[in-house]
Write a protein that binds this DNA or RNA. Structure first.
Lengths: 334, 334
DNA sequence: TTGAAAGCGTTACCAG
DNA sequence: CTGGTAACGCTTTCAA
């Protein structure tokens, strides 16, 4: 009990070969019954646990996957992580965490970890790729929730264009005609898609988008606030604002309150993502809900398939969204 | 380029021994200059990366730490994770994620991972320990933010009693005399401490705690709502509520709004934790702020010390809290 | 069905 | 300062 038992110890005790012990303990079905039970029993008794480094070295796998996000501090990733973790766990994989903070060096570092055998696969939740040495698409990598174009990795995502359009249609159906949009960080595909959805829905409803009605944000609270302020300063301010994510929507609602506007009485607000606690806000936020846990599970499932050698489909996996109509939207006044 | 280069390859190319290459690449300072540069250059050229499994096997360390939380889906842990991740990273450690969901089996599983060499140390953020085989206190484990009594592990935490008392004192100073409390899950030490702080502050102010003024919650939104409702049903309802965490405070505010009460006009509410976006709420939540990133950093620093053989101090590391007075507290309506 | 032995890629010990 | 070589603990041929 002073030192960890190894396979050799069990073998010596039972006068069998280490090979047999290894086989018995890995359920290979190659060990006959009297021996099998004796080995299992001895292992239990000695409290044997295999050394992962040795096993990994020999098998050339780490039984770990890497989950890389842009910012661990963002609650949006939580539920996705949960889905990934659960599925990984079931398959016997540990989950390593990576936080890039949008730093290209760190992005590269995580790809290196993959190469180093730290992990067997990677789930990427960043909006872009390290440019310098373009990672080969053959790598077992799945992009979840985000969109990375041109890299050739399989994606699990929602239809952001359609979902955004749906949110705007909801405002149109309520009778709004002056609908503004606060975008996400605009070079990124995700933001572009949501903006496109907004534009499509506006066009479909025969509504003009006046100058200044599209404000550029960055997914953070402050930019929602700032965008909203700019909107209110317009000669003809909007009666409804569609924000590209919930955090900016909270900022917008806040700004509206501070200027003495009632939400949704004076101005309606819609968010995107349905993050944790967004229904606990006051008023509860109307928003587009993504099936985040499911995205995580699905991404991990895809990754498992890739790691076991299957070719990924080129078409992205699209999961459904749902518009949660809550307390921040209402028909316009008059 | 077809196969990964190993130390042997570099050695062969340069006609030096693998040992020298290993020494050169690990900055041991034991390799003389002409050789040193040649090896480094060759490694760079061949795009050499050491195999972690082999290294781990040999050095008997994994250069990974395990961070185990009760629920990854809870944003409270985010900032702590961030602090842990940053410090771990600087020291060359990867962070593995564990999610117990309060399942004893999974708690045990994570302790097993530690023993298996999956990780060299562990940061625990669960309120309790797997009972069955009491883990030896010699294990490199640090408890962060939570409190686990009797296990002998070092702790990094805040003074929950004093912080809770401070929150209540704030209400007292505003003139409140009927102050209620909604607790956390009550067998847990953390909840007990916050409740004790509430009691101490009430006693110090010479205030009675009427029956029903302490409602039992579980840190979740719904329990804040329920606790608040029960409080409102009291013959003499409170003019202020101190909630043991922010999530329950949001629930309470919500419930108050639904019953037509103004916050803070009719009832003041104070939370605990200062979670992400709690200042974005409407009204912005008055709450006790924990230095979460700092807790994470400090816990990891302690763990690094333990892993390098230092004996941990028996006294817990106590980090300061700050009361954030925001929009949910005001003097009582006469 | 079992055993012997050869690695997996590193690092660390012992000589020189 | 450098080289040879033996581990580290496991899995997996190849034989028996």
């Amino acid at each position: 009990m002073t030192t960890r038992p190894k396979i050799k110890d069990i073998a010596a005790r039972l006068r069998v070969s280490p090979a047999t012990v290894s086989r018995a303990l890995s359920d290979s079905g190659l060990v006959a019954e009297p021996t099998l039970s004796r080995i299992r029993e001895a292992a239990r008794l000695l409290n044997y646990r295999p050394n992962v480094s040795a096993r990994n070295l020999r098998t050339r796998r780490s039984m770990a996957v890497l989950m890389v996000v842009r910012d661990i501090g963002n609650p949006f990733y939580l539920e996705i992580m949960k889905g990934v973790e659960a599925t990984a766990r079931e398959a016997g994989y540990a989950v390593l965490m990576g936080n890039t903070e949008n730093d290209p060096d760190r992005e590269i570092a995580y790809f290196d970890m993959l190469r180093d055998g730290h992990a067997d696969g990677m789930i990427l939740m960043t909006g872009k790729l390290p440019a310098e040495p373009a990672p080969p698409p053959s790598l077992p990598v799945v992009v979840a929730s985000e969109i990375i174009e041109g890299a050739g990795f399989p994606h699990v995502q929602v239809d952001n264009v359609a979902a955004a359009a749906g949110a705007v249609q909801h405002l149109v159906a309520l009778g709004h005609r002056r609908i503004a949009h606060i975008t996400g960080p605009v070079p990124e595909v995700l933001s572009l898609h949501r903006r496109r959805g907004y534009r499509q829905a506006m066009r479909a409803a025969g509504l003009k988008i006046p100058p200044g009605y599209i404000q550029r944000g960055d997914f953070l609270l402050a930019s929602g606030r700032a965008g909203c302020r700019a909107l209110l300063d317009l000669p003809v301010p909007p009666t409804a604002i569609f924000c590209a994510n919930d955090e900016m929507a909270f900022g917008a609602v806040h700004e509206l309150h501070q200027h003495g506007h009632d939400v949704p009485g004076d101005v309606s607000v819609v968010g995107f993502d349905d993050i944790y606690l967004s229904e606990a806000f006051y008023p509860p936020l109307t928003t587009v809900s993504q099936p985040r846990a499911e995205i995580g599970r699905m991404a991990m499932t895809q990754l498992l398939a890739m790691m076991s050698g299957k070719k990924p489909s080129r078409a992205p996996v699209i999961l459904p969204t749902a518009l949660k109509v809550r307390g921040t939207t209402a028909p316009p006044r008059t």
